[in-house]
Design a protein around this nucleic acid. Structure first.
Lengths: 136, 136
DNA sequence: TTTACAAATGCAACAATGCTGCAAATATAG
DNA sequence: CTATATTTGCAGCATTGTTGCATTTGTAAA
């Protein structure tokens, strides 16, 4: 799957900034912050363009935001999930800062007060990844 | 439980800003943002003092931060929970913006990759509260 | 291919928030 | 009451979020 294919599939214009962001996210196993995405070419696009492009891609459900407990934000490509499951869970390694999607691998239950309705559930698991837990 | 008692219990000096923040949190059923805490007397303390006081209270485990999916932050008093349960779950009403603690009322499970370790789990349930779901 | 238009981009600018250093004020232990 | 460590207020800077507007660009239709 290429950046261009993703954009076509979502009927979005094939622009430089969009291609760049999607390409970087495709290259990465883990979710990336805005800064991490920009890293290879920090000055390639204007700050505001970057900001607006991320916003658009999120609104169009191409990518999703992950808000960590330290208030920082990372972005990841959306999978082809059914969107039936309202639980969005991610793992964040406190040492190497990597973020992993736990889609389909987690379960959450809560007893809400009467008449409360759940729309979405956002979970961030803070911990250590295998590499950081057992540094060899 | 008064603000002074809480401060004594944590061996913290009994200062104006601390008392003010704790008093406002004690008065409220739901978690409050910095702005919401300040609301009654917006100019009573300097912006930086407020910022640093919240940070201190959090570091001393008097209050905890709740980071919502829109990146905003709310604060709530810590209960007397055993701290055995690493899951911190809160409900956020997307309409009236209230935040409720779901402590002890939720359960989370995830299949992590081998050798990954969980330290803490932060959950935000986005939805509608009873009042906003069934406006009478 | 050219044209036309909506959309995307870059730039300027401002708001909100996070954060640090330092001097003055203050809480509390003795 | 005094001494001292802590807290506070102020000035100021960094980062991030956001908007308006003029210019450029992608794409669909002529």
């Amino acid at each position: 799957m290429t950046a261009e294919e993703i954009l076509q599939r979502h009927k979005l214009k094939n622009t430089g900034c969009r291609k760049f962001i999607l390409t970087e996210l495709l290259r990465s196993d883990s979710a990336l912050s805005e800064e991490e995405i920009k890293k290879p070419f920090p000055e390639l696009f204007d700050r505001v363009t970057f900001y607006r492009t991320l916003k658009t891609l999120e609104e169009q459900h191409v990518i999703h935001r992950i808000v960590l407990h330290d208030n920082s934000v990372k972005y990841a490509l959306n999978g082809h999930h059914s969107d039936q499951n309202p639980v969005h869970a991610h793992f964040h390694c406190g040492k190497c800062d990597e973020v992993l999607c736990l889609e389909g691998k987690s379960h959450f239950d809560a007893e809400l007060p009467a008449d409360f309705v759940t729309r979405e559930v956002f979970v961030v698991v803070e911990g250590l990844c295998a590499g950081c837990n057992h540094p060899s």
